[in-house]
């Protein structure tokens, strides 16, 4: 998470990873970073390659200029890519296998199995992560770090990384996601939800994450409630 927040380009230049999603290219056998699913190391390497190709001296660019270069050249991370890369070591610790391998077990199609085996990160999306085969719903009062919040009617995912409790009662939780809804600040974002209404739903709590116009982000929580929800990966829950 920290690595995505401050991609290290040397000379004390740390860049927050912008948002980039490209499902179309992903279908056509592109590399993880070209699909918006690269690891921090792969993203840094891609930026360096891009600078070489375009004959840009990275050493002369400031952090903001590097970030602009990444936006212009469509290098970044999408929501499921970010969540997958953060969860992967978590899954390895919990179940001694990779996230891709864990999700592969629930696939019946040979094509899906092959794709997940050879190109795991490119083929993990919100639908797969939060499908009933791989995850189960969680009540708001039962959330834990590692849980996923599916929003925008199943098109976006947030990862809960910290839950604050007062004795047994949850008072807030922190989440991280990569979103395109923040204009020039698109990309990896952290946010916090304060439990101000103990009987209320998730969208009725206080979301401390603001869009550029200062409205609370909510990430589409109010728009299509049927497919929204909180999920826990079965491989993490084991």
């Amino acid at each position: 998470m920290n690595a995505y927040e401050s991609l290290d380009f040397g000379l004390r230049r740390h860049v927050r990873c912008p948002y980039y999603m490209n499902a179309g290219v992903r279908k056509r056998a592109a590399s993880a970073v070209e699909s918006g699913k690269g690891s921090p190391e792969e993203i840094i390497k891609e930026v360096k390659s891009c600078a070489l190709i375009k004959k840009i001296d990275l050493a002369k660019l400031s952090g903001n200029e590097i970030r602009q270069l990444m936006v212009d050249e469509r290098i970044g991370i999408d929501c499921s890519g970010l969540v997958s890369h953060i969860l992967d070591p978590w899954v390895k610790e919990a179940s001694h296998t990779t996230l891709g391998q864990s999700l592969l077990r629930t696939q019946y199609s040979l094509k899906r199995k092959l794709l997940l085996h050879f190109r795991p990160f490119q083929n993990i999306d919100v639908t797969l992560l939060t499908s009933l085969e791989n995850a189960h719903g969680v009540l708001l009062t039962d959330i834990k770090p590692g849980d996923l919040i599916r929003t925008r009617g199943g098109k976006h995912v947030l990862l809960i990384y910290e839950v604050e409790k007062d004795q047994e009662r949850i008072i807030s939780f922190s989440f991280v996601h990569s979103s395109d809804r923040f204009g020039d600040n698109s990309g990896i974002q952290r946010g916090k939800v304060l439990f101000t209404n103990s009987r209320g739903e998730l969208h009725e709590q206080q979301w401390q994450e603001s869009l550029p116009d200062q409205k609370p982000a909510l990430e589409g929580w109010l728009e299509e409630r049927e497919k929204n929800g909180i999920f826990r990966l079965k491989c993490v829950a084991l």
């Binding site: 592109a30 590399s31 070209e34 390497k45 390659s49 190709i53 050879f118 190109r119």
Partner: peptide, 11 residues
């Protein structure tokens, strides 16, 4: 790019 998930050549 497709199997090893990395660029061998810059282009």
């Amino acid at each position: 790019k497709r199997i090893l998930n990395k660029r061998i050549f810059i282009l």
